[in-house]
Amino acid sequence: MKVAVVGAGSVGSSIVRELCGHGHQVVVIDEKPDAIGRADLRNNHWIVGDACDPMVLREAQLEQMDVIVAATGDDKVNLVVSLMARSEFGVPRTVGRVNNPKNEWMFDQAWGVDVAVSTPRLITALVEEAVEIGGVVRLLNLQSDRATLNAFTVPREHDLVATTVGEVPWPQEATLVAILRDGLPIAPTDDDVIEAEDELFFLATGDGEGRLHRLFAR
Rank of each mutant, 00 (worst) to 15 (best):
R181L: 03
V11L: 03
R146C: 01
D66Y: 00
E104L: 11
T163C: 11
F152D: 03
I194Q: 03
G96T: 15
L62E: 04
R38Q: 15
P120L: 10
P185D: 11
L57A: 14
G112L: 09
A178H: 04
R17C: 08
W111G: 00
P171C: 13
F202Q: 02
V161L: 00
G7M: 07
L176R: 05
D50G: 05
E197I: 02
D30N: 11
A60R: 00
I36L: 12
L212K: 03
K2W: 02
L57N: 06
L176V: 13
D114F: 04
D34V: 08
G12M: 10
G112F: 10
V77F: 05
N78Q: 10
V177M: 14
D192I: 09
P188N: 09
D30K: 01
H213Q: 15
Q109R: 14
E18Y: 06
V67H: 00
K2F: 04
I123S: 13
E199L: 12
F216K: 02
P54D: 12
E157D: 15
L212V: 01
P155W: 13
D190V: 15
Q172C: 01
S82M: 06
G134P: 08
V81F: 10
S118T: 10
Q143E: 00
R38A: 14
S14P: 02
S118G: 03
V177H: 06
E173M: 03
Q25N: 13
F202V: 03
D145C: 07
H45S: 13
L19W: 06
D159L: 00
G23T: 02
G9C: 08
L79M: 09
Q61M: 12
A70R: 06
V67K: 00
A70Y: 09
L19G: 07
M1R: 09
I29K: 01
V69G: 01
P92V: 07
V91L: 03
R86L: 12
V27T: 15
V137L: 01
I68E: 01
G49S: 06
R17F: 00
D114N: 12
E195I: 05
I133G: 04
V56H: 13
T94S: 07
E59A: 14
A39R: 02
E132N: 14
T94R: 00
E197S: 10
G90F: 01
G90I: 09
A178L: 14
T175F: 04
L160S: 06
L200K: 03
A217N: 15
V48Y: 11
G134R: 11
I123R: 08
V137F: 02
D108G: 11
N100E: 09
L62C: 12
H45D: 13
A204M: 00
Q172I: 08
R146L: 06
P101N: 08
V5E: 04
L215C: 12
R121C: 08
S87V: 13
E209D: 13
P54G: 07
I179P: 02
L176P: 04
V137A: 03
T175A: 09
T119M: 08
N100K: 11
L79K: 05
K102H: 06
L149C: 06
D190R: 05
F152M: 12
Q25V: 09
K2D: 14
D75P: 05
R138K: 12
M106H: 10
G112P: 05
L215P: 02
A35I: 06
S82C: 15
